[in-house]
Nucleic acid binder design. Structure first.
Lengths: 310, 310
DNA sequence: GTCGGTCCATAGTTAAACCCTATAAGTTTG
DNA sequence: CAAACTTATAGGGTTTAACTATGGACCGAC
């Protein structure tokens, strides 16, 4: 029993005396002097305004009140013991929770990361919230989520006043994507900026960082893009493009996982966009949160390595 | 919340801070200064080796570990609260226990007392142990029973070295008892000592105080009693006497409650015997025990009054 | 950007609680 | 009745927990 214990000494003493049936022997077992027990029990009895122990005879007996109180004291002691252990569980990641926020189009990239995390720490309760790009940072500031995952905006060089930290998971090149029936599907030639400007596009709306990258590219090269459809649904974009006549701009990873889509390089190269984790700089980070950050970091290196081997 | 509480302050503080979401407001509510809370929570976190509260943001939030620990702390707090209340129950006699020991032949007298006690305090768990006269005092000394009820022995004037106290519940006169078919049943005349010595008797054995009274009487008057049957069962005595030819000596109360028995006065008068309660002098007496002693005392006065009115 | 305002953390001091040794008081046993 | 054992009491020293005063971080407003 530790010197400095959250559980009241007087109750520990009561429990021990009841167990040993003797002040003297309980004192030995507890490594305290016998008068200490006398004093503490007296105080406890004063507080409860009822005798708990009958020490008139040769052996110490519990009174009625003592018997009943002891039951509850034991249960309370047990609860605190369990609570102390449960904290250990949180720290070794056998329990806990993690709240992630990400934009809808990042999920196809990070689901494998999430699956791996869950496989490693099955006791952690995971919750993911789809939210617009611009909601992620406030959500972190207000502690509604622990970690955000999003594409970085073009302007996001270093936002000085932010109280968040970021980590780049990986970069992706952007390509023009067309369906099987699209005129450019078979040619597999690269496209120059002017030709790119003539394509009819299905695009994400301006809530998305990806769109900002493209708009900036167009502005830089004096292109007026022909945005036929705007949507906030990646599924809509893919479906529309697969129908044939429309094109879009997507990261290579998405294009390559969709059987009906074909990437076409644009020259000069469309900007890369980066997928980043973002979290609160000075706030408390739970063990579950730290474990995710570390795992994501490893996973990111592994991705880069895979990519470079291609 | 009391100034001097058995429940650890640090846990009370944690609970309050979690409730108010603020050190400052919790401190106001608890009537302590804010630094006290800072210090206590810090110590608690040190002890548990885990942060419990996240005070990086504008409002104080529980960490994962804090959430889980708080649940257990609340439960422990509840247990001690219940325990404190339960003691009150013992003291107001809505809970408790009482162990009585008595000799088999006193039960006919005291069952009504027991029933009354149970009616007044239905929450008290009663247990009665039939035991020989001579076991009662040891049982009290060894705290196996709280109160004993027995007939006093003739020699029991004042036993100095005893650590027990006694209280005389009532005195009973002894009579010769005969059945319907007994020659003396119809005469209803009193009997002198010599004629008493000629009766064939069914008697309790010498374990019983009643028998000691009778033996001493016989010895004092030079009578050699004709003890045909000895037994430790009152039922056997009554059955045998009702059959007709045998007589016995019993207290008037028993004789009058048995339809087939008739009391016959003996001259000089047979000794009275007294029924006493006996309990430990210096030992702890539970509320249930004290209540019984008091009730028995009242009941005794009432019995005397009834008897004097006859 | 800077200036208050609010909140929690830290430092230093005082009062109380806790534990110890020594000794007394009460029971039980030989 | 004395010896042995057990719990209670007294007095002193150390630790703990409370307070006041102050510092540092964050948030909003001007």
């Amino acid at each position: 029993m530790d010197r400095r214990d959250i559980f009241p000494r007087s109750l520990q003493y009561l429990i021990a005396i009841a167990e040993y049936g003797s002040y003297t022997r309980a004192a030995e077992a507890l490594h305290v002097s016998q008068p200490t027990l006398s004093q503490q029990i007296k105080q406890l009895e004063d507080y409860l305004q009822s005798p708990l122990l009958d020490r008139s005879g040769r052996s110490v007996q519990l009174t009625d009140a003592g018997k009943i109180f002891l039951q509850h004291a034991r249960r309370a002691w047990g609860e605190l013991n369990i609570g102390t252990r449960a904290i250990q569980d949180v720290q070794d990641l056998s329990r806990g929770s993690l709240r992630l926020g990400w934009t809808p189009i990042t999920d196809y990239l990070t689901c494998s990361l999430l699956a791996r995390y869950h496989h490693l720490y099955p006791g952690i309760t995971l919750s993911t919230l789809d939210m617009p790009q611009d909601d992620i940072e406030p959500a972190i500031s207000e502690a509604r989520i622990d970690i955000g995952i999003a594409f970085s905006k073009p302007s996001d060089s270093e936002e000085a006043s932010s109280n968040t930290e970021t980590f780049t998971l990986f970069e992706e090149a952007l390509y023009l994507a067309v369906g099987d029936a699209h005129p450019r599907a078979k040619r597999k030639k690269h496209l120059n900026a002017q030709d790119f400007g003539k394509e009819s596009l299905v695009q994400l709306n301006t809530d998305f960082a990806l769109r900002h990258h493209i708009d900036r590219y167009c502005h830089d090269y004096g292109i007026e893009p022909r945005n036929v459809i705007e949507t906030n649904s990646l599924t809509v974009i893919i479906e529309m493009v697969e129908l044939g006549s429309l094109a879009t701009v997507l990261p290579s990873t998405i294009i390559n996982t969709q059987r009906g889509l074909h990437p076409i390089e644009v020259v000069p190269e469309l900007p890369h966009h980066t997928v980043s984790m973002i979290w609160h700089k000075s706030g408390y980070k739970s063990p579950a949160c730290l474990a995710f950050l570390e795992l994501a970091s490893e996973w990111s290196s592994a991705m880069l390595q895979t990519k470079s081997m291609q």
